[in-house]
Structure formats: C-alpha cells, structure tokens
Amino acid sequence: YHADPSLVSFLTGLGCPNCIEYFTSQGLQSIYHLQNLTIEDLGALKIPEQYRMTIWRGLQDLK
C-alpha cells in the first residue's frame, strides 16, 4: 500500500514518519481513514507507545 501525501505530511509533521507503515500495512492510506481512531485503536495497530498520544492529539486537532 502507498500512503497518501496527506498521511505522510501529517505523520512527518508530528515527528512520526516511521509510523507510516503501521497504518498503510492495515490499509489505512489517508488521513481520512485515521480521523475516527481512538487511542485504543492506535494500540491495536501496534503503534509504538511513545507515539500514540502524539498521533492521537494530532488527530483531535484535525477535528
């Protein structure tokens, strides 16, 4: 799967570019796929713990 530029820029902007593959490997290719994820969902996606809160907060800021 290839990540949408919106996803790449979002995660890169948060300092988490190495997390892109965790999302794309589950078929979550764009920022729209991420918008309703919970902190528990990020854990289920195996996002490293040190990035989960950062990503979750970033998603809240998009709403």
Rank of each mutant, 00 (worst) to 15 (best):
18 N>I: 11
62 L>D: 14
12 T>C: 03
44 A>N: 08
17 P>E: 13
43 G>H: 15
46 K>W: 03
7 L>H: 00
59 L>S: 03
14 L>F: 02
48 P>D: 08
30 S>Q: 14
19 C>H: 02
18 N>R: 06
53 M>H: 14
53 M>A: 09
44 A>V: 13
49 E>I: 03
20 I>C: 07
27 G>L: 00
54 T>A: 09
52 R>N: 11
51 Y>D: 07
53 M>L: 12
48 P>G: 05
41 D>I: 00
24 T>Y: 04
10 F>K: 00
32 Y>L: 14
61 D>L: 07
10 F>R: 00
20 I>H: 08
45 L>C: 10
25 S>L: 08
36 N>K: 14
18 N>A: 13
8 V>K: 15
8 V>G: 15
44 A>I: 04
17 P>M: 10
29 Q>E: 13
58 G>A: 12
42 L>E: 01
21 E>R: 10
34 L>N: 02
53 M>Q: 13
26 Q>T: 07
38 T>K: 14
39 I>W: 04
61 D>H: 13
50 Q>G: 14
53 M>P: 08
31 I>Y: 05
45 L>W: 03
55 I>R: 01
33 H>Y: 06
10 F>I: 02
42 L>S: 01
60 Q>D: 10
3 A>R: 15
7 L>K: 00
44 A>P: 09
31 I>A: 11
19 C>E: 04
36 N>L: 08
58 G>R: 04
37 L>A: 09
63 K>N: 04
57 R>E: 08
62 L>S: 07
15 G>W: 01
13 G>Y: 04
38 T>Q: 10
39 I>V: 11
35 Q>R: 13
58 G>Y: 01
24 T>H: 06
58 G>E: 11
63 K>T: 15
59 L>M: 09
52 R>C: 06
7 L>G: 00
45 L>S: 03
11 L>E: 01
59 L>V: 13
45 L>D: 01
40 E>C: 12
30 S>K: 09
12 T>E: 14
63 K>Y: 15
52 R>M: 05
49 E>L: 09
6 S>K: 07
31 I>V: 13
1 Y>K: 05
46 K>E: 06
43 G>A: 06
16 C>H: 09
53 M>D: 12
59 L>K: 02
24 T>W: 04
21 E>V: 10
50 Q>Y: 03
25 S>F: 04
32 Y>Q: 13
47 I>K: 00
57 R>T: 12
20 I>R: 06
50 Q>M: 13
53 M>W: 09
25 S>A: 12
46 K>S: 09
58 G>K: 11
11 L>V: 03
2 H>W: 14
13 G>T: 10
42 L>N: 01
3 A>Q: 15
27 G>N: 08
60 Q>W: 08
45 L>R: 04
4 D>Y: 15
11 L>R: 00
36 N>T: 09
36 N>Y: 04
60 Q>Y: 13
13 G>I: 05
35 Q>M: 08
7 L>R: 00
22 Y>A: 09
55 I>L: 07
38 T>P: 04
63 K>C: 04
53 M>T: 11
33 H>A: 10
40 E>A: 11
23 F>P: 00
40 E>L: 11
15 G>A: 06
37 L>H: 08
50 Q>H: 13
46 K>M: 05
25 S>W: 03
54 T>C: 06
49 E>K: 10
31 I>W: 09
30 S>F: 02
18 N>L: 05
34 L>W: 05
5 P>D: 15
40 E>R: 08
48 P>E: 08
51 Y>F: 09
16 C>V: 11
51 Y>A: 10
15 G>N: 11
30 S>E: 13
51 Y>E: 07
26 Q>E: 11
17 P>H: 09
40 E>P: 05
22 Y>F: 11
2 H>R: 15
5 P>G: 15
26 Q>P: 04
32 Y>D: 12
31 I>Q: 12
57 R>V: 03
3 A>Y: 15
13 G>V: 04
43 G>Q: 13
53 M>R: 12
19 C>N: 02
51 Y>P: 08
42 L>M: 07
8 V>Q: 12
54 T>P: 07
59 L>H: 01
24 T>K: 10
47 I>S: 00
12 T>Y: 09
14 L>G: 00
17 P>C: 07
16 C>I: 15
55 I>M: 04
28 L>T: 04
25 S>H: 07
18 N>W: 04
29 Q>I: 15
17 P>W: 05
57 R>D: 11
11 L>A: 01
58 G>P: 02
